[in-house]
């Protein structure tokens, strides 16, 4: 979303170079204080109910999704395990230990059906990138990726009784039309992954599979850097950690690294030319308010 707005400002000439920086600190009790004051709705109507924070909100979404579309814990576990495999290749990831599906399934329950490894870990950290015209990047001799298309939506599908889809579903055709590519041209995807169910919704709503086909899609791909449908190639927020708003930038910085041959560790996806990065956020009551996505490509040599 920041990327999209910065690009618009550069495109219209309002700015020449925009630095997008997101960061957060993490002190004792700071996460609790954030949760208790997250939004008026959450303070009035969610937090007093056990103070589970986003774990509880996503548990309700995950539980509904599993009951409606037949997803199993193993499906979400597969994503978490694949991302941990990716994180082991990425030096900045906070999780350094491998994770097996059995360990995922045996983890202590947090808010059923979510266990420990379904929940993103708050941390301190920062992500940042620069947005400028392609010509300026070339003149400055900077390694860069091109923005092929972006979408952004707010308060979508608000008549749905519970969130089973996001605004990506409204605008995905527009996104791919802007980019001039088809789904099979996408070499990697960086989803917003604070909980695995929302990654599965992104696969569906961005058109990589149909609504409700997410579980089968997960079963038929590996999601690792060297496997099929590489996803969250740095380990994603689930294995790197979520540094406040910087969590939403994680996929962008990793995409830029992939497309400029500057990956850290061994996360490089072979012949990555086009990548899709997706964002989601702000569960102010019972569902996420906003979502966005961008398609980025390698700069022509």
């Amino acid at each position: 979303m920041a990327l999209r707005r910065a690009a618009r400002a550069v495109q219209t000439g309002d700015a020449q170079v925009i630095a997008c920086v997101a960061a957060d600190t993490n002190q004792i009790d700071s996460f609790r204080a954030t949760l208790g004051n997250f939004s008026q709705f959450s303070r009035d109507a969610v937090y007093p109910y056990g103070a589970g924070g986003p774990n509880a909100s996503f548990a309700l979404l995950t539980s509904y999704y599993m009951r409606t579309f037949g997803a199993r814990r193993e499906d979400f576990g597969k994503l978490c395990v694949a991302q941990r495999d990716n994180a082991l290749r990425f030096p900045h990831a906070l999780f350094k230990k491998s994770l097996t599906l059995q360990e995922y399934l045996d983890a202590r329950p947090i808010a059923t059906p979510l266990g420990l490894y379904d929940c993103v870990m708050p941390c301190a950290g920062a992500e940042g990138f620069l947005v400028m015209t392609r010509r300026r990047a070339v003149e400055l001799g900077l390694a860069h990726a091109n923005i092929l298309g972006t979408i952004e939506a707010h308060n979508s599908f608000r008549a749905d009784p519970i969130q089973i889809r996001g605004g990506w579903a409204l605008d995905r055709d527009e996104l791919f039309a802007q980019a001039g590519v088809r789904h099979d041209a996408i070499d990697f995807v960086q989803t917003y992954d604070d909980y695995p169910v929302i990654s599965v919704m992104q696969f569906e709503d961005l058109g990589f599979c149909g609504k409700g086909e997410g579980p089968d899609f997960v079963r038929s791909n590996t999601f690792t850097c060297s496997g099929t449908f590489p996803t969250n190639t740095s380990g994603g927020q689930l294995s790197v950690g979520q540094a406040g708003a910087a969590g939403g930038f994680l996929g962008i910085t990793e995409s830029v690294r992939q497309l400029t041959d500057s990956t850290l560790g061994t996360t490089a996806v072979t012949d990555a030319r086009v990548g899709l990065v997706s964002g989601f956020g702000m569960i102010n009551y019972d569902r996420g308010l906003c979502c966005g996505a961008a398609i980025l490509s390698r700069s022509a040599p």
Partner: peptide, 27 residues
């Protein structure tokens, strides 16, 4: 009641002695 969870972790000390507890989303 369209979705339900049993909470095993709370960020507030008040709830920690009172877990697990059931929450749900009611339409």
């Amino acid at each position: 009641l369209i979705s339900e969870t049993t909470l095993f972790h709370s960020n507030e000390p008040f709830f920690r002695r009172r877990l697990p507890c059931r929450l749900g989303l009611v339409r």
